[in-house]
Design a protein around this nucleic acid. Structure first.
Length: 557
RNA sequence: GCUCCCUUAGCUCAAUUGGCAGAGCAACUGACUCUUAAUCAGUAGGUUCAUGGUUCGAGUCCAUGAGGGAGCACCA
């Protein structure tokens, strides 16, 4: 038995006696002939599914009569299950045989009986491990630490206090943890630790696993909604020779064999439009883009973007699609579902944290979602208002009155000299209007000059057929009637590039994209959705880092 | 890149005006076959983020640096 950690094995020289104690137990397991790193463990059931079998547990009298269990949840405080069983007559609890596995998150050692709570992706369940009941495996039970992974075979039953439990018949040691887990009922709270050691955050911090499972459900729902409408999912290149499709600073990299500098993509747009030209009439990509910009509660340098293009559509068609994507995602998240394994305790967690949707009275609308202290009402249809309308309403100035807009801009400290009136107007819009948009609201019909990839309104070339969806001041979606006039597109690119400094003009003219348009891109609606921000809203997360598993951090030293 | 705030035991947090660095959980020893933040008795655990400085004395004050957070800037 090795009491002290082998210096070669433990990187930290001061690795406390906490690790030594765990290594001692590990060594003891080896002595017992148990592999401390486990192996394949077939036929286990998810804990959520095991818990769902509570109804199969009965009290069986000696004459074979099965009596259903009492309703513990609604029993009086002084209810005594032991007494109840005695009152029914001589008999025993009978339940299904189950096999589960998970991480030990709590244990209460009571002499020759141990209560151990294990946790898997779907929830927690209590094990009752008695010396007499598990026989030789009792020796294994003596070597268990919080954080270890174990499997169990046993009968599903209910303890005297009404707690659903697996009455262990066999224990299977699956993996030793030689690190101490976080505090057992607070989890992690230091945001740095939560992000750097997301593996701990997921298991131990309340709400984290359900939130990331919700993210998966939302993304799956989006793909399903698009598939139902015959959109084709594709994967464009992430290494671009020209980083186009948005105005953002790209990350640069280098290909050695070709000896060329490349950029990580900042948008999906230009390749998807090439596919429209190629005849992929309904196309989308849901994937990562990279922007070499600041980090904030709403920005991570890499984030997930959805872009959708529909031939022969326009921005109004995209508005309807956006509504469907959001509303379907809300329903999918609420339903749990997607896979049976995600139905169990994850939805329990939802219930315990918020309103009990099973409540008999007044079912809450599925479209009312909490957001901090507020509630967002996603009931469709979402509001639709024009940019000009909102500008007049919130800035208190006629957007067409350039002098008045400029005056207001100056009073807000916005630079006006030598800048295009529409750019000034948009600065005012961002300053005065966006924060006031509680939403969800579609802001439509933007000034054309700030929308270089957008088709103008037929009856008013100063206005672009564009909308943005705002919720709680956050921009969630951005859509256009796509510009498909190659000559105009080229001109707009040029004038856009002309205004940029050398450093900022990494976006170069994409001649092949223009060439593609010259071959004829169908008139189309196009939509971009910031998936991370959508997930933030639907999961009541105030920072993007809570919906990205591994947000960018400086490396540890 | 700028401004402000935070960093104390493995985790969650205390520490009065600058005056002996503490608690809970986790760990260790012991008791307990229906506990559930189990309980009870005992033991051990610290480079107070780092490096300098002021002081008789620094977790506390000052400077610089590191990491994190919020805001700004950036971000059609």
């Amino acid at each position: 038995m090795t009491d002290a950690p082998d210096p070669a094995d433990s990187p930290a020289p001061d690795a406390s006696n906490l690790e030594a104690a765990r290594r001692a137990k590990l060594a003891r397991l080896v002595e017992l002939g148990v592999d401390p790193w486990g192996g394949r463990f077939d036929d286990r059931q998810f804990i959520g599914d095991v818990r769902a079998r509570l109804g199969e547990v009965v009290y069986r009298l000696e004459d074979g009569t099965d009596i259903p269990l009492p309703d513990f949840a609604n029993a009086p405080d002084d209810f005594n299950f032991r007494q109840w069983k005695a009152d029914q007559g001589k008999g025993e609890l009978v339940g299904p045989q189950v096999r589960a596995a998970g991480r030990i998150v709590l244990s209460r050692d009571k002499g020759k009986l141990q209560f151990i709570d294990i946790r898997d992706m779907t929830g927690d369940i209590q094990l009752m491990v008695g010396q007499k009941q598990v026989g030789d495996d009792w020796e294994i039970a003596q070597q268990l630490d919080l954080g270890d992974l174990i499997g169990v075979d046993g009968m599903l039953g209910v303890s005297n206090t009404g707690e659903l439990s697996i009455f262990a018949a066999r224990l299977h040691f699956l993996t030793k943890s030689i690190e101490t887990p976080p505090e057992k009922h607070h989890g992690l709270s230091d945001p740095e630790l939560r992000q750097r050691q997301r593996y701990l955050d997921l298991t131990y911090t309340e709400g984290v696993m359900p939130r990331f499972l919700d993210r998966t459900r939302i993304v799956a729902s989006i793909r399903r909604t698009l598939a139902e409408r015959n959109f084709v999912e594709v994967e464009g290149p992430t290494l671009h020779a020209i980083a186009g499709g948005a105005a953002a600073r790209p990350f640069t990299t280098h290909h050695n064999a070709l000896d060329i500098d490349l950029f990580l993509r900042i948008a999906l747009e230009l390749h998807l439009k090439r596919l429209l030209v190629g005849g992929v009439e309904r196309v989308y990509e849901l994937g990562r883009v990279y922007r070499n910009e600041g980090i904030s509660p709403k920005h991570n340098p890499e984030f997930t973007m959805l872009e959708v293009y529909q031939a022969y559509g326009d921005y109004v068609a995209m508005m309807d699609l956006t509504e469907a994507l959001v509303c379907d995602a809300i329903k999918a998240r609420r339903a749990g579902g997607m896979s049976p394994l995600l139905t169990g305790a994850t939805s329990d967690a939802d219930n315990s944290s918020g309103s009990n949707k099973q409540g008999a009275d007044a079912p809450r609308s599925p479209y009312l979602l909490p957001w901090g202290d507020a509630t967002i009402d996603f009931t469709p249809p979402f509001q639709r208002k024009t940019y000009a309308e909102l500008f007049a309403q919130h800035a208190g100035v006629d957007p067409d009155d350039e002098a008045a807009v400029a005056k207001l801009a100056k009073s807000l400290g916005i630079e006006t000299a030598g800048r295009h009136p529409d750019v000034i107007k948009n600065d005012v819009f961002e300053e005065k209007v966006e924060d006031a948009l509680v939403g969800p609201i579609f802001v439509t019909d933007y000034p054309a000059s700030i929308c270089p990839l957008t088709k103008r309104k037929r009856d008013n070339p100063a206005i672009a057929e564009r909308f943005e969806l705002f919720v709680e001041g956050m921009e969630i979606a951005n859509a256009y009637t796509e510009l498909n006039d190659p000559d105009l597109q080229e001109e707009l690119f040029k004038s856009q590039l002309a205004g940029l400094s050398e450093e900022d003009s990494m976006a170069k003219m994409d001649h092949d994209f223009i060439r593609a348009l010259r071959h004829g891109m169908p008139p189309a609606g196009g939509l971009g959705v910031g998936i991370d921000r959508l997930v933030m809203l639907l999961t009541n997360s105030q920072t993007i880092r809570d919906v990205i598993l591994f947000p960018l951090l400086r490396p540890e030293r």
